[in-house]
Design a protein around this nucleic acid. Structure first.
Lengths: 111, 111
DNA sequence: GCATTATGTATAATAAACTTATATATTTGT
DNA sequence: ACAAATATATAAGTTTATTATACATAATGC
């Protein structure tokens, strides 16, 4: 399992990227996808996920649609155009972050 | 500049790794090294650094020695054996984290 | 039939971590 | 003299995630 400390700050990145790849997902599905894609290394908790989803909605990055199958209500989340471009920004930002971290964590032998 | 959100949780990793490479450093020197190594992309604030250093000391990962040159007091921090091995663990953990994040952020085209 | 597991959304209290603001003081360059 | 750089440190506030909890349905095993 990946340390929670490292995961902090990547929740939005993960959620937005998954929504970008999948057009629409519901909350529970997001937790499943994350666990599946990460090979069980990352497990989102609902207490962390839903506040983020609600905030993303309030900020205009995602929109929701309710769907009833049987008596069960499912809330699907999908990206707005702003959400799509922010998703890409956050993924790019993550890669920059990794490159920068490596400057510190892997100093060149010749240095 | 790297997003603060991403940086959260990596402070300990950065500090311990720098101390591992440098045998001993004082607080101000750590902020300088981080800025220098990261090409200005990462700037530690003292409000974040000192609490971490104090906590690492309290937990037995670093020890301090005061040095007086003139009237100025410098507090040097260096790793204990536990600190050395934890530094390596955190660096390894960071690389695992990156690999896992990429499983989510860069799904294979064939997938 | 009953219990358990899986599915599903959500909030509240708490804890951890960092940011921002602030305080204090010395040294160096101009 | 004055400003900028050097140096350590704390306090208040904010953000963010964890843990615990609540509620409810559907499917599966026994």
């Amino acid at each position: 399992m990946i340390s929670n400390d490292l995961l902090k700050g990547t929740l939005r990145t993960i959620v937005l990227k998954l929504l970008k790849e999948n057009s629409r997902l519901y909350g529970y599905e997001i937790t499943q996808k994350v666990e599946e894609l990460s090979g069980g290394e990352i497990k989102l908790t609902f207490g962390a996920l839903y506040p983020v989803l609600h905030k993303l909605e309030a900020e205009g990055y995602v929109v929701t649609e309710k769907e009833h199958n049987g008596k069960r209500v499912r809330i699907y989340y999908s990206l707005t155009p702003e959400g799509v471009s922010w998703a890409q920004s956050l993924v790019d930002e993550f890669e920059d972050f990794v490159l920068t971290m490596r400057l510190i964590l892997q100093p060149l032998p010749a240095q």
